Simulated assay, not measured.
Amino acid sequence: MRYVRLGRTALEVSEVCLGTLNLGVRAGEEESHALLDVALGHGVNFVDTANQYGWQKYKGYTEELLGSWFARGGGRREKVVLGTKVANPMSDWPNDSGLSARHIIASCEDSLRRLRTDWIDLFQMHHVDRHAPWEEVWQAMEHLTGQGKVRYVGSSNFAGWHIAEAQESAVRRNFLGIVSEQSVYNLVTRHVELEVIPACVRYGVAVLPWSPLHGGLLGGALRKLSEGTAMKSSQGRAAEALRTHRGAVEGYEGLCADLGADPAEVGLAWVMSRPGVTAPVIGPRSVEQLEGALRATRIRLTDDVLAALDVLFPPVGKGGPGPEAWAW
């Protein structure tokens, strides 16, 4: 496993991040614990979750599952760089969501209890809160980092100008600010190339793409549908995108077949090759899917293949960052 710095920090993380959205939901507790053990055995030290994950059973369930895994000992917690999130509603009560100082601090305490740990390595704002002034947000984050309960702060689903605004506010307080940004990024959804990734590169913020296979669309969806083995790729964002991008997906799966490579591995290798990307967040449901994702770390796509992928899935506008992408 290769390790990379998390943005401008000195923290080292594996070049893939294990997302836990499926753990405890599409995979049972013992199966999830086994998958986590295999990932750690392969050197994957970066694990991402959120306080809301597991909502299909109840909010907070996935954090509890991770807490029970850490409780098995063996240095599991000490080896893992752990990220979780705050902002999404945890109940219908008005102060149980968003980025108020009250909710940030209370949410951190709740996550620590569920995760059975004394600290969170990466506490991420799941969404921007347009009602919370950055002075309030950073006051709360400074409080938590000062207590040693949070090591670093990250963001998720931010616009480029949110990142810039947040960072400039943090600089005025002599605070480290945001060190990572999780954004949806894959061959089908490339909007972050316009402004989010350029902002992250400028401020030394790690880019952590989520849904690198667009919900399974780029994991051989057409082949799986024809074989009757499609699960995730026949639902949600993948099924919706397939109606629009069927021709491109056909071409993509044909290209992967010509390369003798699995579509899921090619799609993940493409994301990992992109400028500014630190570690994609993968969401395997099984050890087999995990090992496929790890094989993708060894794939290096040639310039010809990258060009062919750009033809099938063109970048937004004229390509590259704004304003060049639309202005000239």
Rank of each mutant, 00 (worst) to 15 (best):
V4T: 14
L6P: 03
T9H: 07
T9A: 09
E12S: 11
C17T: 03
L21S: 04
A27W: 03
G28S: 13
S32F: 10
A34H: 15
N45F: 08
F46R: 01
F46L: 04
T49V: 07
T49N: 04
T49S: 12
A50L: 05
A50P: 01
W55I: 00
E63V: 06
E64N: 03
L65A: 03
S68L: 07
W69I: 05
R77I: 13
K79Y: 10
L82M: 12
T84N: 01
K85L: 08
P94S: 06
N95T: 14
G98C: 03
G98V: 08
G98S: 02
S100Y: 12
I104Q: 02
S107W: 10
D110E: 14
R116A: 14
T117L: 06
D121S: 09
D129V: 11
E135S: 15
Q139K: 15
A140Y: 05
H143T: 15
T145F: 11
Q147V: 13
K149T: 09
V153A: 12
V153N: 05
S156I: 05
S156M: 08
H162Q: 12
E165M: 12
Q167F: 11
A170T: 02
V171F: 13
S180G: 07
S183R: 00
Y185S: 05
V192D: 07
E193V: 01
I197N: 02
C200K: 03
L208N: 05
G215D: 04
G220W: 02
L222S: 03
T229N: 03
A230Y: 08
A230V: 12
G236A: 05
A241C: 02
A241M: 09
H245K: 14
H245N: 14
R246W: 06
G247A: 15
G251A: 11
L255P: 06
A257R: 14
D262T: 10
G267C: 04
G276T: 06
T278R: 01
R285F: 06
L294W: 10
R295M: 13
A296M: 13
T302H: 08
L309Y: 02
D310I: 07
L312V: 04
L312C: 06
L312A: 03
P315V: 05
P315Y: 10
G317L: 06
G322I: 03
W326A: 11
